[in-house]
Design a protein around this nucleic acid. Structure first.
Lengths: 151, 151
DNA sequence: CTCTATATATGCAACTTGCATATATAGAGT
DNA sequence: ACTCTATATATGCAAGTTGCATATATAGAG
């Protein structure tokens, strides 16, 4: 069941209900590998918070699976890095097929962004205002308000 | 497997790989019901083409299931319309809970649109250009080109 | 009588997701 | 030694979602 409230963004509507859809994670992974040169999974999970396409928290398990699939598709390549301390890291880099895919993603996301802007303009033209973030949301002791009594 | 090419949009990258995700269909359905007042499923499927958030073709089966779930969640209400010719139509209208949900969606989509714009700016700043639509795409006899030899 | 458009709905295999869990290295603190 | 935490990768699995095919039915056109 899709919910526009996840409880992790105060009481405000968020896109967590969109899920950690790998199709949203994939372009960000490819972008980070392209700009950083190389990175391992755990590192990507942190960097991703700054440029993810949804509000959803990154699921590490899901991220590793995305990376595995990208490697099967030959869009990224990896090798183990056992230097440094701590557990070994699997370090990924983007392939030329991956760079091509990234450019496809930029086109797709550009289209979606335009569709969403058009939708938002229509909504505004029909006086449908976005639900503003609730300021009292971050208060810990916030009971369910009248506006929140949905399942 | 996600693909940025579906074969239904010439040879250009599209968001069909994003799927007919009901989370993208739901806000459009709510918007159309809000602005039209009421509509039946088959009608919504057609109207949706003009303001859908992805390039994906509407799957009628999926749309009817979205409508069923929205009704269970009391975001829409329906009744049969047996007037007029042809098969009976189930006519839907939006409830006040549905209008509230729609405003949540407008907020969520606003956030996503901003995230996507930020992503696109970053990509552009890194000289990652969107893959342009292939002009030869609509030509029927187009063989797989060198750029297209991915599975 | 057949074909097509309209209209709603279900069946199902394959795929995706969120969450829990397993495994292991290493530093900091007690 | 022992515990705790952070780092790091990975899998298991139930529940949910998707795309496509299919079933059903009304009515107009030819």
């Amino acid at each position: 069941m899709p919910r526009n409230r996840c409880g992790r963004h105060g009481n405000s509507p968020c896109s967590c209900g969109m899920g950690n859809i790998y199709r949203f994670v994939e372009p960000v992974v490819l972008f980070l590998l392209k700009t950083k040169g190389h990175a391992h999974g755990y590192e990507l999970a942190r960097d991703m918070k700054d440029c993810s396409l949804t509000d959803a928290a990154i699921d590490l398990g899901g991220l590793y699976r995305v990376l595995q699939r990208l490697e099967v598709e030959a869009l990224v390549a990896s090798e183990w890095d056992t230097s440094g301390s701590g557990p070994a890291r699997r370090v990924y880099s983007i392939t030329s097929a991956g760079e091509y895919r990234l450019r496809e993603w930029v086109a797709v996301i550009g289209n979606m962004s335009r569709s969403m802007d058009a939708f938002l303009r229509r909504a505004r033209a029909s006086d449908i205002e976005p639900l503003p973030d609730s300021p009292e949301a971050d208060v810990a002791g916030s009971d369910a308000t009248a506006a929140d009594d949905r399942k």
